[in-house]
Design a protein around this nucleic acid. Structure first.
Length: 861
RNA sequence: GCGGGUGUGGCGGAAUGGUAGACGCUGCAGACUUAAAAUCUGUUGUCCGUAUGGGCGUGGGGGUUCAAGUCCCCCCACCCGCACCA
């Protein structure tokens, strides 16, 4: 009689053993190849959630598998510890942000540890400590020297609820990403990082990231939004003003029939401010601004200023100048010329205001036809703009050129005439890093009335946050602090003020990947030798894992920051994350009672009458809908291995995972089944390293063969990040082994071999159980330090396989045949099948297809 | 609107152009048990048939092929991102 598996004690025992032997400690002195596994570090909110469990389980499988496969693995963990929730807690509960944050990390560290993660905890970092943030202050000063950081007055997005500045990326549909409050515009002096200087490099770098999801690369590429075009200055008839427009289609200039400026363009009011209906029109434009545009599909509207601009190449053509609602002030110059024939928006606009539509690009279809030129009458019959390739027509000196050649030619002419220049435009803007918050890294700058903004001298770093602060008043406590901001100017020693803004918290997460390489370095963010070992030039984090919600912001900032660090000589690496995997969300059904009140899953389970409640679709877990599962409950009830197993089963990691009670129970049952299956045989197994018997039975050969195939299969699945398939193969092997009933001593020998392989290949998924069974099988070593098993090639092939026999493409029978049997053998075997004979029905065999190991197809008729 | 993705049993999902539905969940039947739980065995796409067997079946419609979930063309639905970017 075998004892029941005591999950709780057993798992704790092995975790203690790993800690004791320090087996996950990473060092730079290894002759093994390095492998750096990193998961996005958590914000210490207080408790881990199921998304963390998924994230860190995925990383753990990779880390443990790579370790076993012979790599020197670095797998660290830390805390993204600055941020607003700490201040909110301070305001709501009067607890100091530092205290709140640190106690949260204490709790969450225990929770993470209870998952049994293969982490080198000696490298733990906490970004809110001066030991961490002093280095980013230093780097900021270096950026300043190099012109990567600068200060400018700018209109910012102001969140009136959080009382803070938001980055453009943090504004969603005109509302703050966290609060949902409508964003206000406010002018402040802000610090910026010149990410735009790296725009091209960041764009080109994407092409080297072949182990990133295509989707993320596309998103970043769109975000950078590079376009090449022409800045062109046009004269406004009857005015001293000139109009600077931007176009990406300078080749179509001879097709221009109007010009248009944005409603908030400085010239709009100047030229048309006194006209009837102007104010009303502007108001209308602002109303259709942000999100409603989506709903109404915004009709193109214009307001005629009454002015015209002179066409630069056609002296008899004056283009009417409109104010138009579809022109954006913050892109390009906020002014365009409209070419209705070749831009759909311009086309819609021209139709509405009855402006000429003049075609200047002839599609390739016409080039090969007898019609030398696109007939004029068809131009008016156009139903939509043509934006495809073609040849220039109706365009004077551009006629006959292809689009690209025409672009180059017109830019050359404009530059020669001194009326324009070719330019590259980006959607990407510089990264505003100032935040009016307490709980962030202080910006090491002192303002002096005489000397201006003076960097804090390096020997005075770090500038630390004052601890005695109060959140009684709204706004930034650093502003209100009685002493902190008052200091003296490092240059002239007169009284001066400290910068009270702190860094955007994306600052900390932009370089933490380096800090893990050398977390205790007091003088540098990272020692160059350590950085070069783990993140060399051309290399980086080998596998980064996290949520797709960081596809643009965090990942773009970190790529930029890494380049900036390289520019300043800190590191040699350019791309911080060579491999990226973005996991899906964890979802759960939602429950509402008869009154529409949301219920926790546990509340629903306990309802006396479940039919009175409404069960909703499985959606992303959120506190507001109460469809959340507390990992601590799961870990406490089912153990870490079962939780890890379930979260890897079924759903491919990149897709959403539906959390179900039956699923976690199924996983738990399998953990117990494995334990039972192996322990019940332990007494009868031969000793470790017993010699291979010569008389293996067919059944014994089968399980060995299955085990060795699984070695290859599971490894490949983990390599491919198909953890669900790895789990399926583990279960398959376990099914095969458990249906084998050993009779002889040699059967038991095969059983031991298969057990050991099974344990080793499920170790990355269920490491506690694996250690336990490994030890029960009599091993003194830690399984964690054992290598991945090597598959014996000779055991991967089988004597016979089953293949299908089709008649005219329809499956009619199956035959057992040697994988390399010749065609005659296959033909004989196939035509012997009763079903095949019946299906052929006496017809002539016109063709016999035999793909060895795959299929037979008899074509009859 | 543009870009990307997904679509396979009751459900999650497998399937280098070659036995569609691996593996699991659920359900059903049975064994064990005084009983329940746990465990074990069988079964579980659908329709016709007592059955050997056969028809249908991977969002829809065409095509290529001896053979298509997979490749090509057209269409539909849903999800994600960007959203008037000149």
């Amino acid at each position: 009689m075998t004892e029941r598996y005591n999950i709780k004690d057993c798992e704790a025992k092995w975790r203690a053993k790993w800690t004791e032997t320090d087996c996950f400690k990473a060092t730079e002195t290894s002759d093994r190849e390095k492998y750096y596994v990193l998961e996005m570090f958590p914000y210490p909110s207080g408790r881990i959630h199921v998304g963390h469990v998924r994230n860190y389980t995925l990383g753990d499988v990779v880390a443990r598998y790579r370790r076993a496969s012979g790599y020197n693995v670095l797998r660290p963990m830390g805390w993204d510890a600055f941020g607003l929730p700490a201040e909110n807690a301070a305001i709501e509960r009067g607890v100091h942000p530092a205290k709140w944050t640190i106690s949260n990390t204490t709790e969450m560290r225990e929770q993470l540890k209870s998952m049994g993660l293969a982490i080198d905890w000696d490298r733990e970092i906490t970004t809110c400590t001066p030991e961490y943030y002093r280095h980013e202050q230093k780097m900021f000063l270096d950026f300043l020297k190099r012109g990567i950081a600068y200060r400018k007055e700018s209109v910012v997005n102001w969140d009136p609820v959080d009382n803070t500045v938001l980055a453009n990326e943090q504004v969603v549909d005109g509302k703050g990403w966290r609060t949902g409050a409508p964003v206000e515009r406010k002018s402040l002096n802000q610090w910026f990082l010149k990410i735009t200087d790296y725009a091209d490099d960041l764009l080109e770098g994407l092409e080297t990231l072949d182990r990133w999801p295509e989707k993320v690369r596309t998103m970043q590429s769109n975000w950078i939004g590079k376009s090449e075009g022409l800045h062109l200055t046009l004269d406004i008839a009857g005015s001293d003003e000139t109009l600077k427009i931007y176009t990406t289609r300078p080749d179509t200039i001879f097709g221009a029939s109007f010009a248009a400026i944005a409603a908030d363009h400085p010239l709009a009011k100047k030229l048309a401010g006194d006209k009837d209906g102007f104010g009303e029109f502007i108001k209308q434009c602002q109303a259709t601004g942000t999100s409603e545009a989506a709903i109404e599909q915004a009709e193109k509207l214009g307001f005629d200023t009454g002015y015209t601009v002179q066409h630069p190449f056609l002296s008899d053509v004056q283009l009417p100048l409109y104010i138009a609602n579809f022109i954006l002030m913050d892109y390009g110059t906020g002014a365009i010329y409209g070419v209705p024939a070749h831009d759909q928006r311009d086309f819609d606009f021209a139709k509405k205001y009855d402006l000429p539509i003049k075609q200047v690009i002839s599609p390739p279809a016409y080039a090969n036809s007898d019609i030398p030129e696109h007939p004029v009458e068809e131009q008016h019959a156009m139903q939509e703009a043509y934006s495809g390739t073609g040849t220039l027509i109706n365009s004077d000196f551009l006629n006959g050129l292809e689009i690209d050649a025409a672009k180059a030619e017109i830019i050359k002419r404009c530059e020669a005439m001194n009326i324009g220049e070719g330019t590259t435009q980006y959607r990407l803007r510089d990264w505003g890093i100032s935040r009016q918050r307490y709980w962030g890294c202080p910006i090491p700058i002192i303002y002096c009335d005489d000397c201006g903004a003076v960097p804090v001298p390096e020997d005075q770093l770090p500038v630390t946050l004052p601890e005695d602060i109060s959140f009684d008043k709204p706004g930034n406590p650093l502003e209100h602090h009685p002493r902190w901001k008052h200091t003296t100017c490092p240059t002239c020693s007169n009284p001066a003020r400290r910068e009270t803004d702190t860094f955007d918290t994306f600052f900390e997460s932009s370089w933490y990947q380096f800090r893990y390489c050398d977390p205790h370095n007091e003088t540098l963010p990272v020692g160059k030798d350590k950085a070069d070992y783990w993140m060399p030039n051309g290399g980086g984090v080998d596998q980064y894992i996290g949520g797709v919600e960081h596809a643009v912001l965090h990942l773009l900032y970190a790529r930029f920051f890494t380049r900036a660090m390289k520019t300043c000589g800190y590191v040699n690496c350019e791309e911080p994350f060579k491999g990226l995997f973005t996991q899906g969300m964890v979802t759960h059904e939602t429950y509402q009672d008869a009154n529409g009140k949301w219920l926790f899953p546990s509340e629903y389970e306990q309802l006396s009458d479940q039919s009175s409640a409404k069960v909703g679709p499985s959606i992303k877990m959120s506190k507001s809908k109460k469809n959340v599962i507390d990992p601590e409950d799961i870990l406490g009830t089912y153990g870490a291995d079962a939780a890890r197993l379930f979260i890897l089963s079924d759903s491919p990691p990149e897709r959403d995972l539906e959390w179900t009670e039956s699923g976690i129970e199924g996983a738990w049952k399998f953990v117990n089944k494995l334990h039972r299956m192996i322990t019940q045989h332990i007494e009868s197994l031969p000793p470790i390293n017993a010699p291979e018997p010569s008389d293996l039975s067919a059944g014994a050969k089968d399980i060995r063969s299955a085990a060795h195939k699984a070695i290859i299969g599971v490894a490949k699945s983990i390599d491919d990040f198909a953890m669900n398939k790895a789990v399926a193969q583990i279960r398959e092997l376990s099914n095969t082994i458990s249906s084998f009933s050993p009779q002889t001593e040699s059967d038991h020998w095969a059983l031991r071999q298969s057990f050991e392989i099974l344990i080793k290949i499920f170790n990355p998924v269920m490491p506690h159980l694996a250690e336990e069974l490994w030890s029960q099988l009599g091993h003194e070593t830690l399984l964690t330090n054992e290598p991945w098993p090597v598959a014996d090639e000779s055991l991967l092939t089988t004597d016979t396989i089953t293949i299908g026999v089709q008649v005219n493409g329809k499956m009619r029978a199956k035959i057992d045949i040697a994988p390399d049997a010749n065609e005659d053998t296959a033909r004989a075997a196939a035509l012997e099948q009763e079903n095949v004979v019946r299906a052929i029905d006496g017809k002539a065999i016109r063709k016999f297809i035999y793909v060895p190991g795959k299929i037979v197809n008899v074509v009859a008729g």
